[in-house]
């Protein structure tokens, strides 16, 4: 009898507790104080949005997911021929296709993550204006799609390595670290541009241009050691230089990291992330009004 009431009381308590947990106070100008808790609560939405984007990406295409393989493969061939065969840039004894592909992988990931995330808010305007959720879910989940493509095209790299009989060193285990770095490098500007895009649609035209230029500015077709020593530090201000060098360091295992440059890249990645996040959080509350 006693246990019965106690049970009931505890059930009542837990129900009460559950509701208390959802108590929200919204005051003008302050927003929700439990933003980060909300993000955890909306993790399912994060998962479903990413899942949706992945599902939709190759719907109604004939070759489907094969596109994730074909595009980087063709680009790798072109770059290897142009930079390796015609320009005869140094490769330090590494098969040029592998050298190119080790850079193409993070670059493609970065480029598509950046474009996907910067378009994510405008592309989901109907959600933003009709449903509440922490808006951060949108740009971050759209990066996942780019990551899926990345994983698929990673198989090409494995194929290439087997073909050339080129085996990586133990450094390959550091690769996830650099993948994470590429993720953050894309997310920082992605957040910034996504938020700007809500008000100024100009960025819809800026990003494809940046991505196109960035491919040649970043050391994708060549090694960053090709850049003259005195310009090297300046060159490293491009966050992707650090990421790509890191990938080559882990996969090809031939060169040492140019440490000052790498650290500079790293700090730029961090600055972009902080700036992007801060701007996003600051403007987030007006998204529904202006989108």
């Amino acid at each position: 009898m006693v246990t019965d009431t106690r049970l009931r009381r505890s059930a009542k308590y837990s129900r009460h507790y559950k509701i208390m947990e959802h108590k929200i106070v919204i005051e003008a100008g302050t927003g929700s104080r439990q933003y980060w808790i909300d993000i955890i609560r909306f993790r399912e939405l994060f998962y479903f949005l990413a899942w949706r984007d992945v599902l939709v990406r190759y719907k109604q295409t004939v070759v489907g997911v094969a596109w994730a393989v074909i595009r980087p493969l063709l680009m790798m061939i072109v770059f290897s021929v142009v930079f390796g065969q015609l320009a005869k840039l140094p490769s330090d004894g590494i098969p040029y296709p592998i050298l190119v592909f080790a850079a193409l992988l993070p670059w493609q990931f970065f480029a598509s993550a950046l474009s996907e995330s910067s378009n994510s808010l405008v592309g989901n305007a109907n959600l933003v204006s009709k449903i509440y959720f922490p808006r951060l879910v949108l740009p971050t989940s759209s990066v996942i799609v780019a990551f899926v493509d990345f994983v698929i095209s990673f198989s090409i790299l494995l194929g290439l390595m087997t073909w050339y009989g080129f085996y990586p060193t133990a450094r390959i285990f550091c690769l996830p670290l650099f993948i994470g770095l590429a993720f953050i490098a894309a997310l920082g500007p992605g957040l910034l541009v996504a938020a700007l895009n809500v008000r100024f649609r100009d960025f819809r035209y800026v990003i494809p241009f940046v991505v196109q230029m960035g491919l040649y500015v970043s050391p994708v077709g060549f090694q960053s050691s090709v850049v003259p020593e005195k310009w090297r530090l300046l060159y490293s201000m491009n966050p992707m230089v650090g990421v790509i060098d890191g990938f080559r360091w882990a996969i090809c295992g031939n060169t040492e990291l140019y440490l000052p440059g790498f650290l500079l890249s790293l700090s730029f990645v961090a600055i972009m992330l902080i700036a992007g996040l801060a701007f996003f959080r600051k403007t987030e509350r007006t998204f529904a009004d202006v989108i």
């Binding site: 108590k23 919204i26 005051e27 003008a28």
Partner: peptide
């Protein structure tokens, strides 16, 4: 009330989970 947009002034207290259906088939 569904927290899509922020108030300019004033205060809202919501006690419980809120689901809003402002449009059929959002998303």
């Amino acid at each position: 009330l569904s927290r899509i947009t922020d108030p300019t002034r004033g205060r809202i207290e919501l006690n419980g989970r809120v689901a809003s259906l402002l449009e059929v088939g959002t998303g």
